[in-house]
Design a binder for these strands. Sequence first.
DNA 1: AAAGGCACCAACCGCGGTCGG
DNA 2: TCCGACCGCGGTTGGTGCCTT
Length: 200
Amino acid sequence: MMGDQEEANSVDKRINNNEESEVVRKGPWTMEEDLILINYIAIHGEGVWNNLARSAGLKRTGKSCRLRWLNYLRPDVRRGNITPEEQLLIMDLHSRWGNRWSKIARQLPGRTDNEIKNYWRTRIQKKVKDGESVDCSSQIVNDEGSSSHTGGLEEVMAQPSYPIYSNIANPHEAYAPAYSESINPSETYLSGEDFWAVQF
DNA sequence: AAAGGCACCAACCGCGGTCGG
DNA sequence: TCCGACCGCGGTTGGTGCCTT
């Protein structure tokens, strides 16, 4: 999706020419940046995103790194093709919890809050607006007090059969399965071709 | 074939919460 | 107890590709 012209505009906070300190890249991520982030997390693990960004030599904010990792690079992330079952679940959970996207996302293995949010806004919300049979928007409940007494689906979905993020605690392990087919497991670094060949 | 509009999605921004010093 | 840094979440924006006219 992202074009190739980002090099031209992505460095938009150039405070001075001291390239070591004050340049923050914005906009679409390049393959090189992805690889740097992936390899760094494979070795050091995720978390402490500001430090990570600095230590990895990425001219990105910690926030940006975190977002990129969680929404796109994480090995267990699934993108595209929301199934009818997932759609139903999204609608149901949204009717219970409202716009608690991260909470909803935790009930959908491999889905991210950003993806669900986008999906909702572009597809489901449109249907709701058009007055179709999706009737969840009218029954949003106050979430904060609801988690302990909504019961039903929430409890079901809280079962261990939804191991969201559970393997992330050890990023080495989290990483291995997704790439083990084409990459020597003993090798921590990935080449660009390795990564993109596996991903797409 | 070209232009305009629309849909989708990646990424940024702002805010609130949490934690450590 | 206060303050600053960091993290996570939800809302929003901008770019790209597809579809329609």
